[in-house]
Design a protein around this nucleic acid. Sequence first.
DNA 1: AGGCCTTTTTGACGCCAATCAATTGCTGCC
DNA 2: GGCAGCAATTGATTGGCGTCAAAAAGGCCT
Lengths: 258, 258
Amino acid sequence: MPPVADVLDITQLRRSCASCGLRELCLPAGINGDDLARLDATVRDKRTLERGKALYRVGDAFHSLFVVRSGALKTFVLNEEACQQVIGFHLPGEIVGVDALASGRHASQAEALERTSICELPFSELERVTSQIPTLHRQLLRVISREVVQEHQHLVTMGQQQAQVRLAIFLKSLADRYETLHRDGSHLMLPMSRQDIASYLGLVVETVSRLFTRFETMGILAVQRKSVTVLRPDLLAQLCRPVDGDVATGKASQPASN
Amino acid sequence: MPPVADVLDITQLRRSCASCGLRELCLPAGINGDDLARLDATVRDKRTLERGKALYRVGDAFHSLFVVRSGALKTFVLNEEACQQVIGFHLPGEIVGVDALASGRHASQAEALERTSICELPFSELERVTSQIPTLHRQLLRVISREVVQEHQHLVTMGQQQAQVRLAIFLKSLADRYETLHRDGSHLMLPMSRQDIASYLGLVVETVSRLFTRFETMGILAVQRKSVTVLRPDLLAQLCRPVDGDVATGKASQPASN
DNA sequence: AGGCCTTTTTGACGCCAATCAATTGCTGCC
DNA sequence: GGCAGCAATTGATTGGCGTCAAAAAGGCCT
């Protein structure tokens, strides 16, 4: 089956934030009229990446920030030879490339998980426009902040030492994010491989596979390769906390009551 | 023994970025003259926090970003009852509070690990000044980006499934950061508890304790409670990669050569 | 359709780190 | 100084997840 939605996305590639379905989530939020036109002008080609293609690589010189328009990206860093650690998955409306601002070179690699449409924001132009539009400046920081919050939640997930909890949190957060995009969060088409999920969660691929099977046995999911249906959202949510009620991980020092 | 440096910091609490030892690392970098004076004016009281005191808590309304001037902070989120996951440790020159930009409320809590001096940057004033000084705007993004990069490295650490590697990476990065501050990276005075380290690394406190002992037995460290001396930086660096040469974690899918 | 390759799944096994429990060593407070 | 309380260390035990191995299921090309 041809991905109809994607084809439409490509044919509708216009330089128009105003007509974008993401305008309430993305940089245009709270911006109107002439300002929006000025933002529009900074958005370079809305590129399309095929599955597996890199948007940027480690060490690439920094020129632009990018916003996912449709599809999905993964970002990862390379540990040693060919060993990659997945940092994040990025859905429409989310920004990537921020880590390159510090050094002027990308510290990670971004790659398309499926056919993905991208808005490129050349940084020099973006800077010029944000200095003219205070609202846009604030919105840029807000979008970056969203990424930071998401990474914090990822860290919390990795802090969980039970593999089952980690996968439950991952699936739940993915469902929530799709619902933010006004899509059905109970029918997930996972664009990433089991290996990517494993790397993202700090597990091995066999464990992830076994957990999918376990969740199916428990009646929580219906799994068919990349198609995952959440049958019992309530039970999935329950699994997101460690071994029902027991406090597993660290309550740290409280030297003063403040 | 009274911490002489800290006392000096407190008495010298002046509203002067120009005279700050961090000016090359912090927001003032690359800014001069009148612009620096304008930045200075936005920096509210340079507060001092005693050990254990919170700078902000989860749910607090967002007003300001903060920069550590001296001392150290930890940031964490609360999982369930009293169960905290440490997100990061923040040394002088580093910014905290960015995660609150997205929602207008702090998503994490920041707490002093020792007596800590803070520069408060009220966001509304900061915004006004950054819109006037393009260099400062870029520098703000750069400092935020530094935090993002550091969190990426933290994620890589958490992705490591060997506890020994995690602690080695943690100690090495801490040493590196102290050296960036022109301090001796071989004599560390860890301001955080073992429990904090454990939470930060996704381990339990007993494991962390055993690893310190093991590193001492291996002749890599001299450990005396919070005082840690790196005797063999070379060996410590070696431990930062998993089981010498063997590729442990996931090399993920490579669907296309690009 | 057939064959090759990759991804995913399943099984058996062993090890590392979590868990439980107890002791030691600080720090602060009375 | 002595006691209380917490932090840190150490030991014994268990279980969960990584490791190794192999089979099954898709995917893709010819």
